[in-house]
């Protein structure tokens, strides 16, 4: 079991990681951030991606799929962004957000590692 800081540090050890954050999508605020660059403000990313997560959840609800998001992948020209809502009993309303450099990362491995981090995260 890992706490928040350990989980974010672990997320940053994933190959190609640029930044990671744990975000509350009821408010858009971050519970913790790691990495990032002077140009990339992870709190801005968190607030913006909160709207992405909410939109997708609403769509699933409207389609009456009776399912939930396991993870979301957004592919940019130079980056991958992975969003992973927390499923644990304490993780309700939270998601993990990971930014990866496309050139330096292994997407399948990163996705697997992020799942492990999410499963072990205890708040």
């Amino acid at each position: 079991m890992a706490n928040l800081d350990t989980a974010l540090k672990d997320a940053m050890t994933i190959d190609g990681a640029i930044g990671a954050a744990l975000v509350d999508y009821t408010s858009g605020m971050t519970l913790g951030v790691a990495g990032g660059t002077p140009e990339i403000d992870l709190t801005v990313a968190a607030a913006g991606n909160t709207d992405v997560v909410r939109a997708k959840m609403r769509t699933i609800e409207m389609l009456k799929l009776n399912d939930e998001i396991e993870d979301m992948l957004i592919t940019l020209g130079g980056q991958y962004h992975i969003i992973r809502p927390l499923n644990g009993p304490n993780g309700k309303g939270l998601f993990l957000y990971l930014m990866l450099s496309k050139a330096r990362s292994n997407l399948a491995l990163a996705r697997h590692q992020l799942r492990t981090i999410e499963e072990q995260l205890e708040l």
Binding site: S27, V44, T50
Partner: peptide, 8 residues
């Protein structure tokens, strides 16, 4: 409301 976005 996305209050973080409001604060930004």
């Amino acid at each position: 409301i996305n209050v973080a976005r409001l604060h930004l």
